[in-house]
């Protein structure tokens, strides 16, 4: 009973777990770099959600072949994979901006620890 539940849904459960881990890292970790790591995990979980949704058993690559004809079941749907590629590019750009912001923050405050940065900001204000 319980095994059936997990076997049928383990990709979703795994993805949900990754999402939760990512959000936990972004919200609860005190170090800014760890927050970025959490953000990356969160984004990866979304990519995996697209990939598992596109899963098709026994399908070929999406290149037309004479043997398989034009039956839609015979080919993978390439669109979700293309979307994930685009989303990865967006994710890389966001991570890049995040890390460059962290560089500026580290140069100005000498730390990436949220509490210590807030302390310094309060002192200067």
């Amino acid at each position: 009973m319980i095994t059936d539940f997990f076997l049928g849904r383990y990709p979703f459960l795994f993805i949900a777990l990754l999402l939760v881990i990512g959000v936990y890292g972004m919200m609860m970790k005190r170090n800014f770099l760890k927050k970025v790591i959490g953000m990356t995990i969160f984004q990866t979980a979304i990519y995996l959600f697209f990939i598992q949704g596109a899963k098709k058993t026994g399908a070929s690559i999406p290149v037309y072949s004479v043997d398989l004809g034009s039956a839609s079941d015979a080919y993978m749907n390439p669109l979700p994979h293309v979307l994930v590629l685009t989303a990865i590019v967006v994710g890389v750009a966001i991570t890049g901006v995040a890390i460059s912001l962290l560089l500026v923050i580290y140069r100005r405050f000498g730390t990436l620890d949220e509490a210590r940065i807030l302390e310094q900001m309060r002192e200067s204000a």
Binding site: I94, A98, I105
Partner: peptide, 11 residues
Amino acid sequence: FRYLLIGSLGG
């Protein structure tokens, strides 16, 4: 940076 975190969560 804080906006970026919450913004990418929204995205």
